[in-house]
Simulated scan of single mutants.
Amino acid sequence: MSPPLTRRGTVRAAASVFALGLGGCAGQTNATENESYGEPKIETSTATPEPATNTNVGRIVLRNGDSTAHELDVAINHYGEEIHRRTHTIEADGRETIPLREPGSYSITVGLDGDTVSYRESLTESNRCREWELSVRVTAEGTLKRVVTVCPE
């Protein structure tokens, strides 16, 4: 015959069962007390924030609509500081994109055989569609044409 259960033994057994029952739940949820019902409220989030480095406020697209390759000299200043200066070779019917990742004031100059296109723009993250595009195209005649798009698709 087993010894009779004491109050101390009953409390010890109940505490062990309770601790084992909670052991599998640790760290699974972020629960807070819901004051109106006295029940736990589970908070979950499915949103994944994008790192700031992947956010673009704009872009410059260099396009070549001519049947031969062209070299475009591109200079980009951000608040007066040069951040990009390079000659881009764009193949016939080709394109190249230069992302603009920081909000602010930009000055852009694109040159082709002495012909230049300049543009100034102030870009903010609060722009209506959050992205701006300056497209500079070499035409079939070999001249530069500038097109600004506020909400490119």
Rank of each mutant, 00 (worst) to 15 (best):
S107G: 11
G24V: 12
I90C: 09
T55F: 05
S67L: 12
A15I: 10
I83G: 02
E50T: 13
W132N: 05
G24Y: 06
K145Y: 03
R128H: 06
R101D: 09
G94E: 05
P51G: 15
H70F: 07
N64F: 05
E81V: 11
R8A: 13
A75D: 14
A69P: 01
D93N: 13
N64M: 08
R101E: 08
E71T: 15
G58R: 01
E133C: 01
G23A: 15
A75R: 13
D115N: 06
G94C: 01
E91Q: 12
K41G: 06
R59Y: 08
T10V: 08
E131F: 01
G142F: 03
T87N: 13
G65E: 15
D93G: 07
E131K: 07
G21Y: 09
E131Q: 12
N30L: 11
T44I: 08
R128G: 06
G27V: 04
I76L: 10
P99M: 03
G38P: 02
R95K: 14
P49S: 10
V148W: 01
T6V: 02
S16N: 12
E102H: 10
E141Q: 10
S118Y: 00
H70S: 10
P103S: 04
R86L: 12
E35M: 08
D93E: 12
V57L: 01
V136H: 02
L134D: 03
A92Q: 08
R128P: 02
E102T: 13
D93A: 13
V136Q: 04
I76W: 07
I60L: 15
R130G: 13
A31W: 11
T53E: 15
G21K: 01
P99K: 06
T149D: 12
G142R: 04
T6S: 14
E133D: 06
L100Y: 07
V74I: 11
S36N: 13
Y79S: 12
P51R: 14
W132K: 03
R85T: 15
G80N: 06
A31L: 14
T139F: 05
L62M: 07
A26N: 07
N54V: 11
E39S: 09
W132G: 05
M1W: 08
T139E: 10
V11D: 05
V110D: 04
A52K: 11
E81Y: 05
G104Q: 02
E133A: 10
T149C: 01
P40K: 04
A13L: 13
